[in-house]
Amino acid sequence: MVLLGTIVNGVCIVMGTIIGSFLTRIPEKVKETVMKAIGLSVSLLGIQMGLKSEQFLIVIISLVAGAVIGEYIDLDDKLNRLGMWIERKIGARAKGNIAKGFVTATLIFVIGAMAIIGSLDSGLRGDHKVLYTKSLIDGFTSLILTTTLGVGVILSAIPVILYQGSIALFATQIERFVPTELMNSFIVEMTSAGGLMILAIGLNMLDITKIKVANLLPSILIVALIVTILYQF
């Protein structure tokens, strides 16, 4: 089921919000330790995915070229600006804790590399591991946000399902226009490149690095370009 990972993600946000509504205070040390544990798990998943590559040179070139492109256009900053713009627009029309909880949670859950990579994985390979991991992160995050911003956080499950579900469904249609051998090669190398980005997210969660992971997203397009060129020749 293509949308399984996306649906689980939405359910975890809802469950996290419900549980959070009954918990008014969570010790900081508990929050920190749980997030570190999730960070370790995310890192392990990234390593596992990164080792899938059959041609590491493609992954290296793609990440380097993607990083140059991402830094040049500063994709990370643009996504953050988009988030702030959405927050201003929606916040101006709908005041109150519900609106604030909805907007804040949506920006956290939707804008990020994990949502894109996980949705592509779901659509192309039927592999939901990335979205399952994201679900755990979002579930715990929604729990924490609810204790401070209220039950409006639960509404963020709707745009998360629509956004990630759309990417996953779009990815399933790519195979109709791309030769099987080419698609299989792209999936393998995309998984590896995406895995290294997931590893970067985990390291960021552990406060080991401060990598702008969104600036690495163009690497996915570079992978597709290189794999296509090699397939043609």
Rank of each mutant, 00 (worst) to 15 (best):
L44W: 14
V151I: 11
M205A: 10
V34P: 09
M197Q: 10
G50Y: 05
Q48C: 02
I226D: 07
N80S: 11
I161T: 07
I174G: 04
L203M: 12
Y72L: 13
I47K: 02
M190T: 14
K31W: 10
A92W: 08
L217N: 08
T141F: 03
I13F: 05
N9I: 14
G152R: 05
A200P: 12
I108D: 07
E87L: 01
F56R: 04
L217V: 14
T148V: 11
L217Y: 11
G46H: 04
F186I: 06
D74C: 08
I7K: 02
I117C: 10
V68Y: 05
V130I: 15
D77F: 13
L51H: 11
A168M: 01
L206G: 04
I137E: 02
I7S: 05
G202R: 04
D76V: 07
I108M: 05
G70C: 13
G66C: 00
L136D: 03
S119L: 01
F233T: 08
S142Y: 03
L3E: 12
S62V: 11
E175G: 15
L82K: 06
L162S: 02
A65I: 15
I19M: 05
I60H: 03
I19P: 03
A200L: 10
R176E: 15
V153W: 00
G5R: 05
A157N: 06
I144A: 01
V178Q: 12
F140Y: 11
S41F: 15
Y231A: 08
I144S: 00
G118L: 06
I211Q: 09
G194M: 02
V14E: 12
L136M: 13
P179Q: 06
V59G: 02
S62E: 10
T141N: 03
F22G: 11
L82G: 14
F56G: 14
M197G: 06
M114A: 13
W85I: 13
N80H: 11
L225S: 03
R176Q: 14
G101T: 03
V130K: 01
T228H: 02
G46N: 09
S122G: 11
P159C: 02
